[in-house]
Amino acid sequence: MGKSNSKLKPEVVEELTRKTYFTEKEVQQWYKGFIKDCPSGQLDAAGFQKIYKQFFPFGDPTKFATFVFNVFDENKDGRIEFSEFIQALSVTSRGTLDEKLRWAFKLYDLDNDGYITRNEMLDIVDAIYQMVGNTVELPEEENTPEKRVDRIFAMMDKNADGKLTLQEFQEGSKADPSIVQALSLYDGLV
């Protein structure tokens, strides 16, 4: 993909415009910024974590950033290329609610087996709590990752089998306004 070129080839721009919710001009602008920050044309896990640390200076986002990195890194080569970056950004910032929920499901399904187990969710929720640090005051019933996961599973795990399917996750998330709101945070920002 033209590693350190400051412009993408027209056919690449066209393809990314088809695969995302961005215009050709927006794709070019994002590429310019991506190459400025990642001259090699790729972003590794350490660089990704560094970006998260800028956004969450009062907590430790390392663990959460690693989980997000793994979802962005579609081809699992340990690096995020621009096409992976822009497609994930498109879903998280401008995707439909169902697209965002499928993306979030992939984030929580750490072993990619098609289910979110209690332990997988606990890993992610714990990482989120570490990331936000003491900057967020949580209600008593959610002031630990374990309590939050218990509440989520009580609401979403309809067949009580200890794991969530994509359908259970989507339906449960849509029924909880706070989850829908959290997924909409990026709307309109890009």
Rank of each mutant, 00 (worst) to 15 (best):
G133C: 04
G95I: 13
F22T: 02
P57H: 00
I124N: 07
F82G: 00
F64R: 10
I80Q: 13
A45L: 13
Q181R: 12
L16W: 15
V13N: 11
N70S: 10
R148L: 09
T135G: 06
G188S: 14
F22V: 14
M156N: 08
Q181D: 04
Q87P: 11
N75A: 07
N159D: 13
P57G: 06
G47M: 02
V71D: 06
N70I: 07
F82Y: 04
K36M: 08
T23R: 15
F72P: 14
D60R: 09
G95D: 08
M155T: 08
V132F: 14
F64I: 07
N159L: 01
R18S: 06
F153M: 07
F48K: 12
A154R: 04
E15R: 11
Q87Y: 06
Q29A: 04
T20V: 12
S173K: 00
K76M: 08
L110N: 07
T20C: 08
I86K: 00
A127L: 01
D111I: 15
G114S: 08
V91A: 08
Y129C: 06
G2F: 04
V27Y: 15
A46W: 09
C38I: 07
W30Q: 00
T135V: 00
L164P: 06
L89F: 08
E14T: 04
K25H: 01
T92V: 03
L166F: 04
K158A: 00
E146C: 01
P139M: 00
P39K: 00
A104N: 00
D157Y: 10
E140R: 03
K100D: 00
D161N: 09
I179L: 05
V132P: 04
K106R: 10
E14M: 07
L8R: 03
L8K: 10
L185K: 06
V91S: 03
K7A: 02
A154N: 05
F22L: 10
T20L: 12
T23Y: 05
R18D: 01
S4W: 00
D77N: 12
S93Y: 05
G133K: 02
D113R: 11
K3S: 15
F72S: 12
D109W: 13
K19Q: 02
L110E: 09
A127K: 06
I124A: 01
E120Y: 00
K36D: 08
A104T: 06
D111S: 09
P61C: 10
Y129G: 14
N134G: 05
A46P: 07
D37Y: 08
N134C: 02
N70D: 11
D111G: 10
N143K: 06
R102E: 15
A160M: 06
E146T: 00
V27S: 15
A182W: 14
K32A: 12
F153V: 07
E171Q: 02
T135A: 05
M155R: 12
G33S: 08
K53L: 05
F72Y: 03
K19W: 14
D60H: 09
E142V: 11
